[in-house]
Design a protein around this nucleic acid. Structure first.
Length: 766
DNA sequence: CTTTACACTTAGTACGGCGTGC
DNA sequence: GCACGCCGTACTAAGTGTAAAG
């Protein structure tokens, strides 16, 4: 598999898969064995590697091993036997080993464990805000229902007085808040020009308002419904499909599905057996009986002319005149204005995805058993609308009707439908800048902060549990250790054959880890190698504490590679346990907590006060990167990486030449000045000095950029930035070091994190 | 207890538009 | 004015976690 068209291909096709598919759990369907290349894996492997302390890296150990398969059910029995054995063993387990020191290196970064031992988790330490309690609200006593208006009034644009009052408490200088506020907005307006005239110059600060505590998400919700995919336009007659070398006119439904395939012809997908098989099966369903009888072999189908046609079309689109493009843009804008917003509780809010997913062929990630299946067209009859009773309900397209219109204010979605590949439900929800998403996000970080307060206690506890005489507790404790230390995902069970074979912590199998009692200088090394979410490979070697190691050996005893490592554990057991330790605690909170605390700490460590702004930003990116590495957020190296790196290097070289030239000139000017001592030459020296300085700065900037880019080759910063890092840490850092927030967050990100930008001061501590 | 349904977050990629340097 | 590379954004798959159903 070499055809590397675009990053996506390799990702989906050949990327990141190092194994046979395994049977696990109690199902034992036979699967094909495939040999795959591991180019991408190896590249990715380097990431983890270069950031862990070991220099060398060994060959992939488990490539395409042919594993003997158990006959049906045998492994099941096998498993059961184990359980008995383990049970007996549990009683014998009694261990007493000394603990190891507290500070550890993780992925090459030192992570401090906060020394504070916390007994209880008090309420939020910030008394000023309506604190985002995690939502047990439904079960809590209600008290404030009445405060809310049930009926929509006019859409408010400015925040209300109640909020202002609270804001007062927060601002340190109390003097007339109102004038200050006005002044600010006026200034802004002046600089931004007229266009932002009526716009929400007064952005609604939902974070200064009370929140629902009864589990309801809104009181009023009105929207226009979804935008449907455009109907299928049959191909012009001149574009032909050939079967067995002969042109053949297809019925519209069959033709449409054929075009989906044709559009992907360049993609490596279409060469894959599973993809072709799935596609062909679904395609046949759309054929007339006549077509079915003629078309009996996908290999005899020739879609190339269709494919060419679409290429030409997209080429033509690129070549369109300015005016035409402008027209399309305007039309899109119109649709956005009409369908892209809703009114929720008196405020106009942006909708995230108001377009229904168009039909096409399913592209799963990794080795997905359903790749190539037809994703069917969604019709109004498939759609459930959610809105408030007293709103103007969205109208279905003429001649159609909705599947259902409901009024459920316990959920946040506006539109839903059931997708046909997995049978899962898809939703239309609000944009991340919306109140409803923002509150949840804020709350997430508050939960993580509560974890911070008791994490030492929890760590002590799970270390203790490594010694438990119950197997299930030991497993739970070791799993939790991994989740904490390595920021692994929880690892829910998945239905086999429905999705790609990927795992998280609780679903790790024996084959995913290797134990090395000794490796080079280190003792008790565990090697992880598995495919995680999106079939992204996780590869890491880490030394663990002796007790963990011994436990792992124990867990592995008498198991087959495809057996679960933690056979007495699943996510719901784990989360139930966590819930008992801290209100609102689940496995994923550890990821959020460790990500955010790592950022904060790395920022502290890496930022030098005397650094220039670009250097500080580099530090920020490095801190961000530490988190991305921790969370294993990878990306395919950009296709153009090498080239763009070279370009940058050329620029640097040029700049360097410029610099030496400028320096020479400065020298000359100085000499000149020494000789003449006149005003003019003095000025000349100053000018040259400035020039040198400017070029030095430019050079520095370029070099920083190069470093940054190189380090970022295979690492995606976006995911952690958007989902794991408490934005208040970044905001505080910007304020502390006078780095403009725009250097860290782009416009969209600033909108999403408006709450944090507004509330975090430079001394904010996660 | 296990399984299923549902809601919502987290994830990487495709792609178009825009700014930049010539 | 044009080519090019980069960034932002749209898209949608794939996770997590809770609650209801069996």
């Amino acid at each position: 598999m070499s055809g590397d068209h675009g990053r996506g291909d390799s990702q989906v096709n050949s990327g990141s898969k190092g194994y046979d598919s395994h049977k696990h759990k109690d199902k034992h369907k036979e699967k094909e064995h495939k040999h795959k290349d591991h180019k991408k894996d190896k590249e990715r492997e380097k990431i983890k590697h270069s950031n862990s302390e070991h220099k060398e890296y060994s060959e992939r150990k488990h490539k395409d091993k042919e594993k003997p398969r158990h006959g049906d059910g045998s492994s099941e029995k096998h498993r059961e036997k184990h359980k008995d054995k383990e049970k007996k063993r549990e009683d014998k387990i009694l261990s007493s080993q000394s603990d190891r020191p507290k500070k550890e290196k993780e992925n090459g970064y030192v992570r401090e464990r906060s020394p504070v031992a916390i007994k209880s988790e008090p309420e939020d330490d910030n008394g000023f805000y309506p604190s985002p309690k995690h939502n047990k609200a439904t079960k809590r006593e209600r008290d404030d229902d009445e405060e809310f208006e049930y009926k929509p009034k006019k859409v408010k644009v400015e925040h209300d007085k109640k909020a202002k009052k609270r804001k007062h408490e927060y601002e340190d200088d109390e003097e007339d808040e109102d004038t200050k506020h006005k002044k600010k907005t006026k200034d802004k307006k002046a600089t931004e020009g007229k266009k932002a005239k009526k716009q929400e110059e007064e952005k609604w600060k939902w974070w200064e308002e009370e929140r629902y505590t009864d589990g309801s998400k809104w009181r009023f919700l009105e929207h226009k419904g979804p935008v449907f995919a455009p109907p299928y336009e049959p191909l012009p007659d001149k574009v032909k499909f050939y079967y067995d070398g002969k042109p053949m006119k297809l019925s519209a439904p069959a033709e449409e599905v054929a075009t989906f395939f044709a559009k992907m012809l360049d993609h490596e997908y279409t060469t894959k057996d599973i993809f072709r098989k799935n596609f062909y099966k679904d395609w046949r369903k759309e054929m007339t009986s006549e077509e079915k009888s003629v078309i009996t072999d996908l290999n005899k189908c020739d879609f190339r002319e269709m494919s060419e046609y679409f290429k030409a079309q997209s080429e033509a689109r690129k070549q369109m005149s300015k005016e035409e493009k402008q027209k399309i843009k305007e039309e899109n804008e119109r649709i956005l204005q009409e369908y892209g917003f809703c009114i929720m509780d008196n405020h106009k809010e942006r909708i995230g995805n108001f377009r229904i997913e168009p039909p096409g062929l399913f592209r799963g990630r990794g080795d997905h058993p359903k790749m190539g299946m037809l994703k069917r067209r969604i019709r109004p009859e498939d759609i459930i609308i959610n809105c408030s009773k007293d709103s103007k309900q969205p109208k279905p397209p003429p001649g159609t009707k909705w599947k259902e219109v409901r009024h459920d204010n316990k959920v946040t979605w506006l539109v839903s439908w059931t997708e046909n590949i997995q049978g899962s439900i898809k939703y239309i929800m609000l944009n991340p800048s919306s109140r409803i998403k923002g509150e949840k996000d804020w709350q997430k970080y508050e939960t993580a902060r509560r974890l911070k307060k008791c994490v030492d206690r929890l760590r002590a506890q799970y270390r203790d549990d490594w010694k438990s005489k119950e197997m299930r507790i030991r497993q739970r404790a070791v799993a939790l250790y991994f989740i904490d230390k390595l920021a692994l995902r929880a690892g829910n069970e998945k239905e086999e054959g429905e999705t790609a074979d990927t795992v998280g912590c609780c679903s790790l199998r024996v084959e995913h880890i290797k134990l090395y009692p000794k490796m080079d200088e280190q003792e008790y090394v565990v090697e992880f190698d598995f495919l995680g979410k999106d079939s992204i490979r996780y590869y890491n070697k880490i030394p663990v504490e002796k007790r963990v190691f011994k436990n792992l050996q124990l867990f592995l005893e008498n198991k087959q590679p495809e057996d679960d490592l933690f056979d007495r554990l699943n996510t719901s057991i784990l989360n139930k346990h966590l819930q008992e330790l801290m209100d609102g605690l689940t496995a994923k909170v550890f990821r959020t907590y460790n990500a955010s605390i790592t950022l904060q700490q790395q920022l502290k460590e890496l930022t030098s006060p005397e650094d220039s702004i670009p250097a500080k930003i580099l530090s920020y990116n490095r801190a961000n990167r530490a988190v991305a590495i921790l969370c294993n957020h990878q990306r395919a190296p950009p296709k153009t990486f090498e080239k763009s790196m070279q370009n940058l290097q050329t620029k640097i070289d040029e700049k360097q030449k410029q610099l030496s030239a400028a320096r020479k000139q400065l020298k000359a000017a100085k000499a000149d000045h020494k000789a003449s001592h006149d005003e003019k030459s003095k000025k000349a020296v100053e000018v040259k000095r400035k020039a040198v300085q400017r070029i030095e700065e430019q050079l520095m900037k370029l070099q920083v950029q190069a470093t940054d880019r190189e380090e970022n080759k295979q690492i995606a910063l976006g995911t952690s930035k958007l989902n794991y890092l408490d934005p208040r840490i970044s905001v505080a850092w910007c304020k502390k070091w006078d780095v403009p927030i725009e250097k860290i967050y782009n416009k969209t990100q600033r909108e999403k994190f408006a709450w944090a930008i507004d509330m975090a001061e430079k001394d904010y501590e996660f």
